[in-house]
Each structure stands twice: as C-alpha cells, then as structure tokens.
Design a protein around this nucleic acid. Structure first.
Lengths: 141, 141
DNA sequence: TTCATTTTGCAATTATGTCGCATCTATGTT
DNA sequence: AACATAGATGCGACATAATTGCAAAATGAA
C-alpha cells in the first residue's frame, strides 16, 4: 500500500525526467497527502528539517518546471505550490487565504466568471483569484 | 493649487490619526498622481532616495493600517499598494500583471462575478483577482 | 517658544530565495 | 552485482525584501 504509493510517485517523477531521489519522493508525497497548496516553510516543517532549505527550493523549482506542481498564490511573503491536476491554466479555481494563520485552501465549489477586455496588445495567460478572510479557527479568537 | 492638494493630503493624514510629515505627504501625493498601484521600489525611485528605505516601509505600513491605502497584488516579488477609493472591499476590480516587466495595472472595464460558498465558518473579507500575461511592450520581444 | 510624542535615518537583523562547489546517489551499462 | 557518470544534495555564501532598535530630528499642542 505504501509501496504502491511510492511506486506511483516514483513513476510520476521518472515520467517527467526527474530522478526519484528520497527527497523528491518525500516532498511529492506531502503534496498528495496535503491536498492543498503548500509553502516551502510548511514543507520544511513537515519534513522535520530532514532536507536542506536549498534542496527544498530546488525540488520545488524542478517540479514546477516539469509541470508536476505549479506555483499558486503568494500571500505577500510566501509562494505556495500545489498539484496541477485540480488547478490548471486559465481554469484555475480560486483560493482562500486566512489572514490569521496564513493557511491556504482551494475553493472547489466556487466559480468565477468575468467579462471585459484587457487593453490593446495585452495578452492574458493566467488568472489568479484569491479570497482573503478568516478560517473557522481564527474567527473564534 | 499645489497648496490645495497639499492641504487635502494633510487633512487626509490627520483625519486618520497620522502626523503630516514631509515624507508622508510626498508618498501620499505620489499615489494620487500615479493612479495605479505602486511598489516600494517605485516609490523610492520616484522620490529619488530622499527618504530612507525603512521609512518608506513604515509609511506604507502606517497608511495600510489606517486604511489610507491597502496592499494590492504581488507579482511574485513585490507587494504593491494603492488608494482604496477605486478598489475597496469585495468589489475590488481586477489587476493585470506583466510577467515580462512586472508592471501592474488596474483593469477598470473588467468585471468579475462569482458564485459558490466558502466552507462552514469561513469569513470572506476581500477578493483579489489577478490576470497575468504580457503587456504590449513585452509582447513584442 | 517650549516640550512631549512621533517619526526618521542609520545600522543591524530577519526572512525568502539563489548560487557555487565538493560530495554523494540514482540509474543505465557492463 | 559492481561500475561509471550525469545529476542531486548539503553547506556556506550571497542577493534582495522587509523589519527592528535606538539616537537624533521633526511635529503639533500648550
């Protein structure tokens, strides 16, 4: 079971031209388990500092370049990364970010429509929609 | 005329409980003149380094806390700030950010509608919509 | 003008992210 | 299974954005 998962992750890495190193497997597992966008700092904590800071950044950059993950929102300080299967290109779903604890979540049941034109000569490549507010925990305090 | 403007700005500062210092007046003038979101770096350049870096940050934070400006989009590197009159609360207009030069613009004729629900207990306070792409200049190259 | 309170400038510090280089590891080949 | 090597990691140094402590200066109320 854990082996199946490992195999799936290993395959995913190799299919994308990346060696399946311990660090990469562990980071990618985190993304599958988390099911929500993660920042570098959170990954470091979840791995209990088993990996070097620079390595985590390099892993995230490699994943992003390969398309395994892509960078989602930035709350002013942190880049967050997530698996693209749920969130790709122009149909990117919105995200929620808590101003209390900084947690980020995907808003699956939230649909965004927009109409209008960009100026002449402008090209749109991606949209990012972020709802800021308070999560249930931070709302209490 | 310039005095009227200065007076208006001075009043705005005092009304919000902030002393009308030279630096604050100059920064706030910039925002009124620019009519678009500004990053700290741009402000420094426009003021030709007359103010210390730390002071600019403190001024921006003070303004943001007082509600005179608020932080808008981040293009991955820079926080940008803008006057709230054109962009307030849940009716915030979208922004465009060029991945080439990092320039940020307001999209006035661009309307965003969304429907759906946040999870239980979540409170939405603001929305941020960002279209990323290329501006006419960067498109050429 | 005087004076208490804030704000500023400067330097040092923290935080995020990148880079170079020596060492180590994953993987295809023998 | 052992080997060779392209590529990944750890470490330290560096780059940039932003914050903080503290002494000196400026604001604005009396």
């Amino acid at each position: 079971m854990s082996e199946n998962r490992d195999e799936r992750i290993t395959d995913l890495l190799r299919k994308n031209g990346l060696k399946a190193t311990k660090g990469r497997v562990e980071v990618l597992e985190l993304f599958f388990e988390a099911g929500r966008p993660l920042a570098q700092m959170q990954i470091m904590e979840m791995l209990r500092l088993k990996l070097d800071r620079a390595s985590v950044y390099r892993i995230l950059n490699a994943f992003a370049e390969a398309g395994i993950i892509h960078t989602a929102y930035v709350d002013g300080r942190h880049r967050v990364y997530e698996l693209p299967d749920k969130c790709s290109g122009r149909n990117c779903h919105p995200h929620f970010s808590c101003r209390g604890c900084g947690m980020t979540a995907c808003l699956e049941d939230f649909h965004v429509h927009y109409k209008g034109t960009l100026g002449k000569g402008f090209v749109a490549e991606r949209q990012k929609v972020l709802i800021e507010g308070l999560c249930p925990d931070c709302k209490k305090t």
